[in-house]
Nucleic acid binder design. Structure first.
Lengths: 202, 202
DNA sequence: TCTTGATTTGACCAAGCGGTCAAAGGAACG
DNA sequence: CGTTCCTTTGACCGCTTGGTCAAATCAAGA
């Protein structure tokens, strides 16, 4: 199926999705126009619609591709590993995603901000199930005193919010810090805070 | 000046701004339409434009009103108070704003996500200056060992991101937690984490 | 070279959009 | 009751937008 695509088709679909990601992540779904996307992709608008049947289709394709990898960092959290190391590594993976894929993060943020009309069901099923599973693991670690007692759900929310903040609120962060790369500082802060919160000595 | 407004003018401007806040915070600037806003306000579109000269004007008025109070919680952080108490109280004030004014938070989030085209200058001046001032205070507390050493900027970012998360990503939070009110849990988490991070015993 | 299917485009369309305007309807006050 | 100013509206306009279509161009194999 996927192999039946021409080289030209592969290239153009890829170029279009990249241009669409630029526009949708920056202007939101309604704010982005097909003309902008076509222009950014270096194609005419009818030509763009030869590869994707509609604006909606581009957006859907982007969202689907995003969701394939969006949960990977949390999925990789290993209940058999060292608790503090695992949670810290998870947070760092998430921060790295904000650094390497800020557009994807903003695409996701736009979708959630608008009430997640296209992925609300996934949030309530796949995402909730995954978080429940990992929260159980963390709760277990707390119960056996391998980490300090803590609410696992809000811990996960705090990791999400903090790491995504550097992608979604990039402009604000750089306005305050003076446009130096904030990620190294964020990474160090993350390590310091998480180890301090979770270390079970008391 | 402001007193020269009729009762009807006051009421309608207020109703329009409320409807505009609903729409802009949910759909973004481009995603919201004058017809939607007029409809939500219970007015005809020309009537709406009798009170505000343009869609842009409604949006600007909302942003200006927002910015009047947006920085208050941080402004109130008192360098003469007890360090941990002050920072914790600041975070709780910020969380309360997410609880009481989620639409304002989302309006702000939309603006920042899109690159802050209308308030970027404020971020680099007023906001930066305020943050610098308060960061100095926090750094001072760290230096004199009244709180544990910590990067004040990323501490502030973490408070922003965590507290605003419950307004901006409300749908996701409720999808995971099952639509129970998340704010009490968030508040307890905040208190626990901040005291633990900042307590200078070591 | 010819044919076939993939690719590209200029011209076009209908709907939705922000915004205008002249005229009608109300409210307050003498 | 009449005047004046505030308020409201239906009809309309020009522009942008997502999307269509027939025709032109191109690529590749027989």
């Amino acid at each position: 199926m996927a192999k039946s695509l021409t080289r030209i088709q592969q290239r153009n679909r890829s170029v279009i999705m990249d241009a669409g990601l630029d526009m949708f992540s920056q202007h939101g779904f309604k704010g982005a126009t097909l003309d902008q996307i076509a222009d950014a992709a270096g194609l005419s608008k009818p030509n763009l619609l030869y590869y994707f049947p509609s604006k909606e289709a581009i957006h859907t394709a982007l969202l689907e591709r995003l969701l394939e990898n969006w949960l990977d960092p949390l999925q990789a959290l290993d209940g058999a590993g060292d608790p503090v190391t695992e949670i810290l590594a998870y947070a760092q993976r998430k921060l790295k995603m904000s650094r390497d894929y800020p557009r994807e993060s903003r695409l996701f943020a736009n979708e959630i901000l608008q009430g997640a009309p296209r992925i609300k069901d996934i949030l309530g099923t796949d995402l909730k199930q995954l978080v429940d599973t990992k929260a159980d693991i963390i709760r277990g670690w707390s119960a056996t005193n391998k980490i300090a007692p803590i609410d696992p759900y809000h811990l996960i929310f705090s990791i999400w919010s903090f790491t995504q903040h550097y992608a979604d609120f990039d402009v604000q962060v750089r306005a305050v810090l003076g446009s130096d790369d904030p990620f190294d500082g964020a990474s160090a802060f993350l390590e310091h805070v998480i180890t301090r919160i979770l270390s079970p000595n008391n």
